[in-house]
């Protein structure tokens, strides 16, 4: 029982971690809470439903196109809406409202095209299951955990080991100085949105596959859990987002397993509030380190 809960918690936690990393990357370059991230998470599985379940494409091409399309959608939101807002030197809150607007358009667009009923997404990963003692890890769970770990490793390498990552971190620390070093700030931010949206797309599709269905109401719960993961780990911190996601996934699985699933979604809210009050920098967040 315990081992089974851990496996289930890790699976869902890995997907929260993946969304939260993308969300955190965007947050750190702009100090912007991207409300559209949850909409991207829901958008991608619908594209997979369309291409794979309805049009009969292979799963892998459908998945790749969905991730790419979602990434481009995120990049376009930044390029055509948020960049303009930034160039007018408006408050970050204007951008935040803009992302809320975009998420509303996406969700309502999905409802208009696909209807508000739950759409099923047949399982594409039939690689059997693994028995670990009395616990079972399904092929789906294995794929989710392995994929999440690989993608998060790739994202960490990008952020900490590449020139693109240096540019992202420099923007997070001092945007004007980044420009003085020759960083094309707007372009790097757009690329960050592309990566963040694609990460949300991958997570959303994996979760839809896991549950065998997708519907637009997921938007709210995934948004709350993304915020909770990011805040718990320390908003803007990549390792923090990973840790936060796994902890939230574990906690809610345990609450559902040992207590009642009615309280499952409350965990994220409690964590957001508790951390904002008692530990606003989160578990791995940094304090201000900026001598004048």
């Amino acid at each position: 029982m315990l081992l089974q809960q851990i496996i289930n918690g890790l699976t869902i936690g890995a997907t929260y971690a993946l969304v939260a990393v993308g969300f955190s990357m965007v947050y750190s370059v702009l100090e912007l809470a991207n409300f559209a991230n949850g909409a991207f998470y829901v958008f991608a599985p619908y594209i997979v439903v369309l291409l794979y379940a309805s049009m009969g494409w292979g799963f892998i091409p459908a998945f790749l196109i969905a991730v790419l399309a979602t990434g481009i959608l995120g990049a376009m939101m930044d390029r055509f809406i948020l960049t303009t807002i930034r160039n007018h030197k408006a408050q970050t809150s204007s951008s935040m409202v803009a992302t809320l607007g975009v998420s509303t358009v996406i969700i309502n667009g999905l409802i208009a095209v696909f209807g508000s009923a739950t759409r099923s997404l047949p399982n594409a990963v039939n690689i059997g299951r693994i028995y670990i003692g009395s616990a079972i890890m399904t092929g789906n769970q294995l794929v989710i955990i392995v994929m999440s770990v690989i993608i998060m490793a790739v994202l960490s390498i990008i952020v900490y080991k590449t020139k693109l990552g240096s540019a992202m971190r420099s923007i997070a620390q001092n945007q004007v100085a980044s420009r003085m070093m020759g960083v094309n700030v707007n372009r790097i931010i757009t690329v960050t949105f592309l990566i963040g949206s694609a990460s949300a797309a991958i997570a959303g599709t994996m979760v839809a596959m896991y549950y065998g269905s997708v519907d637009t109401t997921l938007y709210t719960s995934v948004s709350v859990k993304t915020f909770a993961s990011a805040i718990l780990g320390g908003i803007g911190s990549v390792p923090g987002a990973m840790l936060g996601g796994v902890i939230i996934g574990m906690l809610e699985t345990f609450v559902a397993g040992y207590w009642t699933s009615a309280y499952k979604d409350m965990i994220a809210f409690i964590i957001i509030i508790a951390f904002l009050i008692f530990k606003p920098n989160g578990l791995l967040g940094h304090r201000k380190l900026n001598k004048v």
């Binding site: 240096s166 420099s170 001092n174 100085a177 003085m180």
Partner: peptide
Amino acid sequence: IKRGIAVSPEGRQVFPRMSVTENLRMGAYA
């Protein structure tokens, strides 16, 4: 910057959470 102008700005403006070496690397970003 790519054309060969570099600045040491007023108030230093180093990247606080990067190491000395990483800051130097940023100087050659272009």
